[in-house]
Design a protein around this nucleic acid. Structure first.
Length: 361
DNA sequence: CTTCTGACA
DNA sequence: TGTCAGTA
């Protein structure tokens, strides 16, 4: 959660590997190949600084385009006589990979977002959850670059009430959750549905960053120069939200507050849950009834879900427990051979936008 | 507890 | 690249 004020981050091998989604072994291989040359401590431990990370990101980008390590070595060594051929290879590799990549990345993305938004998620848990997102560019190299970009230390600029103050307002994501930006002493706060308000700091005119989480907000304006939307940058992904007026924001917040306080589930929420479970037991989930990102995750997870449901036996009972701060309906679901806690989330249009199951207590 | 090297799958 | 052993 805490950014460790790493202005000139020097990462250990494990930290570096973790941050780039690699393994320490891979780092060693690259080093053996002469692709990187990290400094060492007195104890001969590897140290990765900003330059190494940037370099590794380049390597990863090229690797994900389908290039071999040998080819990458040649490329990065600067001796690339056959750039045309290389580009052709990259192009075909990209085309080949596109579908598969979009598919699996949407799965990973949904899980990552959930994790970074504070809810515990383990991959081994049954199905998984997703938020409606607009992951406009899912190609692996751009995700890698974005992850690096998002992890980079930020420099705060002086807060200018005139300029920066104009982003104050409410913004709604497709899943229905709202980001509210408000003024505070000498700066701004941003609050996501069901979470605490966090301070954000200006980095540029329409660009802000969080300090206690690795995330940024970039605001967009229309032709008239009015702020009309915001993009949340987090975990290598981007989610867009559109500006809504204060009345609507208040209505959304009031509605949620009431749902949480009075434990009011979404309309027909229990029936929907029973239907979803039945569909998964049959192995025929209704993807049309889900938002696209959730559908992508669900397709990936359907076989796992079916296996787990088969193991649990027939459905015995479904008991509504309440509504989480973030708006998820939570149920205890009892099966012949075990129980699950299940949460589900509906997008404003009524489609299922998130669902999770985890072992009941 | 972690990293490092070297060997082998 | 993953993994294991034996160290520092």
């Amino acid at each position: 959660m805490s950014d460790k004020r790493n202005h000139d981050p020097l990462l250990s091998a494990a930290e570096c590997a973790d941050r780039l989604g690699l393994t320490v072994r891979a780092l060693r291989v690259y080093e053996d190949r002469g692709l990187i040359a990290p400094r060492r401590t007195e104890k001969n431990w590897r140290l990765y600084g900003a330059a190494e990370i940037a370099r590794l990101t380049e390597i990863l980008a090229l690797k994900r385009l389908g290039l071999s390590l040998t080819r990458i070595t040649v490329l990065l060594a600067g001796a690339a006589p056959d750039l045309g051929q290389t580009l052709t290879i990259q192009q075909s590799a990209l085309v080949d990979l596109r579908d598969r990549v979009e598919h699996s990345l949407s799965l990973i993305g949904a899980a990552l977002q959930k994790i970074s938004s504070g809810r515990a998620v383990s991959i081994s848990e049954l199905i998984t959850l997703a938020k409606e997102t607009r992951m406009t560019d899912l190609s692996p190299d751009t995700v890698a670059w974005r992850r690096y970009e998002q992890a980079r230390p930020r420099t705060e600029v002086r807060f200018d009430p005139e300029k920066h103050g104009s982003v104050v307002g409410d913004f709604q994501f497709e899943a229905g959750d709202v980001l509210s930006v408000t003024r505070r002493e000498g700066g701004l706060m941003a609050q996501l549905t069901g979470q605490n308000a966090l301070e954000i700091y200006p980095e540029a005119d329409d660009l802000f960053f969080y300090r206690i989480v690795q995330a940024q907000l970039s605001f967009t304006r229309n032709e008239q120069g009015e702020v009309e939307g915001v993009v949340l940058h987090q975990g290598g992904y981007e989610q867009a939200a559109k500006r809504i007026d204060e009345t609507k924001a208040r209505a959304v917040a009031d509605d949620l507050e009431k749902r949480v306080k009075d434990k009011i589930p979404f309309p027909d929420s229990e029936a929907l849950l029973r239907r979803v479970i039945a569909e998964h037991q049959r192995g025929e989930p209704d993807y049309e009834g889900m938002t696209p990102p959730l559908a992508a995750v669900a397709r990936e997870q359907a076989p796992l879900a079916k296996a787990e449901l088969d193991r649990l036996g027939s459905l015995q009972s479904v008991a509504f427990k309440g509504v989480l701060q973030e708006g998820w309906d939570v149920y205890d679901v009892r099966f012949e051979k075990g129980t699950l806690e299940c949460g589900l989330m509906l997008a404003p249009g009524g489609k299922l936008s998130g669902i999770y199951f985890r072992p009941g207590l």
